[in-house]
């Protein structure tokens, strides 16, 4: 069983389990490091607009759907991307995931610091992963 260390950190008023990963060039996203909350309540893995920091989202990016997570979000698909995680032995491991971009559908967001990026169940289920206290666990079948 491979283990990927997660970081416990304060975000949005609570201690969250955060995973860092690296996105290599994928669509309009060039090399980008992301810290995302692992959220088993989200069906999507997405990078929030605030984590794109200044990167313009292409107008022709296909919108998958609109969801209400914290606020109404428009979910755009970047496509299947290669993301890299680091395991407990400091080995870099590649994964493929359908990466999305979440853009608030309303003008005014009442979330201090903006919407976080999320690792959702699409990624966790695809690789049979579970969230532990200290690690993201890649379970054996």
């Amino acid at each position: 069983m491979r283990k990927f260390p997660i970081i416990k950190m304060r975000k949005l008023g609570a201690e969250r389990r955060v995973l860092t990963f690296l996105v290599r060039s994928c669509g309009f996203i060039k090399l980008r490091a992301i810290s995302a909350i692992v959220d088993t309540g989200s069906p999507f893995t997405f990078i929030s607009q605030s984590d794109l920091r200044g990167l313009r989202i292409p107008k022709n990016l296909p919108m998958v759907r609109q969801i209400n997570l914290l606020i109404p979000l428009k979910i755009y698909s970047v496509g299947e991307c290669e993301i890299w995680l680091k395991d407990e032995n400091s080995k870099y491991v590649p994964f493929k995931t359908n990466l999305h971009i979440a853009v608030p559908a309303i003008q005014k967001i009442m979330i201090p610091g903006g919407m976080p990026s999320i690792v959702g169940t699409d990624f966790l289920d695809r690789y049979n992963m579970a969230v532990g206290k200290k690690y993201l666990l890649e379970l054996n079948e």
Binding site: R10, V18, L31, W84
Partner: peptide, 23 residues
């Protein structure tokens, strides 16, 4: 699949340790 370059590994390690620093 092309492996990460040394530069990409450095970027990742740096970012990860900075997130831990913040925490």
């Amino acid at each position: 699949m092309k492996l990460l370059t040394q530069g990409e590994m450095r970027v990742f390690d740096q970012f990860d340790s900075d997130v831990r620093f913040f925490s």
